[in-house]
Computed example of a mutant assay.
Amino acid sequence: MSTIAFIGLGNMGGPMAANLVAAGHTVNGFDVVEEARDRAAASGVNVIDTAEAAAQDAEVVITSLPNGALVGQVIDSILSADAPRLFIDVSTIAVAEARDLAQKVTQAGSRFLDAPVSGGIAGAAAGTLAFMVGGPAETFEEAKPLLDIMGRSVTHCGDTGNGQAVKACNNMILAVHQIVLAEALVLGERLGLDHQAFFDVVSNATGNSWALSVNAPVPEVVPTSPANRDFTPGFAAALMLKDLKLAMAAAEDTATDTVLGKIAAQQYADFVDEGHGGLDFSAIINEVRRRE
């Protein structure tokens, strides 16, 4: 069993840390938010006053933070050539940021993986996340037993940064799916089509997607979807916008024309600007309904 420092105990990091504790690992955690610290402590995490202190006796440091700048600050505060460690960043950050961090960590004698996740808060709690991992194959094999505790699907995607690359691509697809699903549902409503009939046909036909079968943006057809809870987020619209901005930055860097990605990014930017960033990203259907 390992001693793990888990930095960032929020909606995603907290449940992930709790699953590591449940598997028998010692987890020393840190977060700047008191509520997150309290929840983590209740699940068996040893809550420590600083990130540096949490990492002091840890062989593995996992970061789950809002952006690449914060990940870099935390790693800088911990990184020491005298204490080589395995760093696993499960945050969603830019590909270039992940590659820069990997270079810094390896130069100091430690190992680094970028391992962003998909599956939302429910997946973090259930231990069913999908991990997409970039970094050396031997480092991936070292980390895989821990990732298997927190996720159902753990995929090595190649070189450092490739985890972030596939995360950007995946969430661009998801955003486009959620928007076109919302448009189709609203079109069906206006044509007099019952939501259940729509779901029964499309979920078993070529138009099916995770956006419908798991995250249907109308109540009752999928009882666990956020639409049944007034769009209390599993994955907030503001986070979707963040990921779309990363995808658009990558598209610009690689001279890739992402026509639908740009449209999705603009629609979610407008939705968040209107004050809906705290809702689940599937609430974009409300914006579609408002449009004539």
Rank of each mutant, 00 (worst) to 15 (best):
E274S: 14
V166Q: 05
R289F: 10
Q56P: 00
A69N: 12
A41C: 03
F131H: 09
S2M: 05
A238K: 15
P226M: 13
D159G: 15
D273H: 07
A269E: 14
R289D: 02
Q73D: 15
A115W: 03
V166N: 03
S77I: 06
P219F: 00
A41D: 06
V214C: 11
P219K: 03
A265C: 15
A17M: 01
M248H: 11
R111H: 11
R37C: 12
A197N: 00
D253V: 02
G151E: 12
S43Y: 00
A237L: 04
A237S: 13
A247Q: 14
L191C: 09
M132N: 06
L86Y: 07
I263S: 11
P217G: 04
G163M: 08
S77Y: 01
T139N: 02
Q196D: 04
A247I: 13
G135Y: 02
N28V: 00
C157V: 12
M12Q: 13
I62T: 07
T26L: 04
A250D: 11
A5G: 04
I78A: 07
V105Q: 10
L86P: 08
A40R: 01
A247N: 12
T63R: 04
V272E: 07
E183S: 09
S153C: 00
Q56H: 06
A165E: 00
S225P: 03
G192M: 08
F281E: 12
T254C: 03
N170L: 11
R152H: 11
A236V: 03
V90K: 02
L181I: 15
V259E: 06
V201A: 15
S43D: 03
T224E: 14
M1G: 11
E189C: 03
L70T: 15
A182D: 09
D270T: 12
P217H: 01
I62F: 10
S77G: 15
G158D: 11
L174W: 04
A182G: 10
R152K: 15
G151C: 12
V32I: 15
L187N: 09
N19P: 11
F87N: 03
V221L: 02
V201H: 11
T139L: 05
A255W: 01
R290M: 08
I284F: 11
L279V: 04
R289K: 15
V259K: 12
V45L: 07
G192F: 01
T155A: 10
G192Q: 02
V176E: 11
Q267F: 02
S91N: 08
R291Y: 09
M240Q: 13
G161M: 05
S43E: 10
R291H: 11
R289T: 08
I88G: 04
L20P: 06
D200I: 05
A69F: 08
G207N: 08
T106F: 00
G123Q: 12
G44Q: 10
T139R: 09
V186F: 10
A238S: 14
G109K: 09
T3E: 13
P136H: 07
A53C: 00
L9S: 02
G72A: 08
E97Y: 00
T160A: 14
P66A: 06
V222Q: 10
T3A: 09
N28K: 09
P217D: 04
F131L: 05
D89P: 11
C157N: 07
L181C: 09
K245P: 01
P136S: 06
T3I: 14
E141Y: 01
P219C: 00
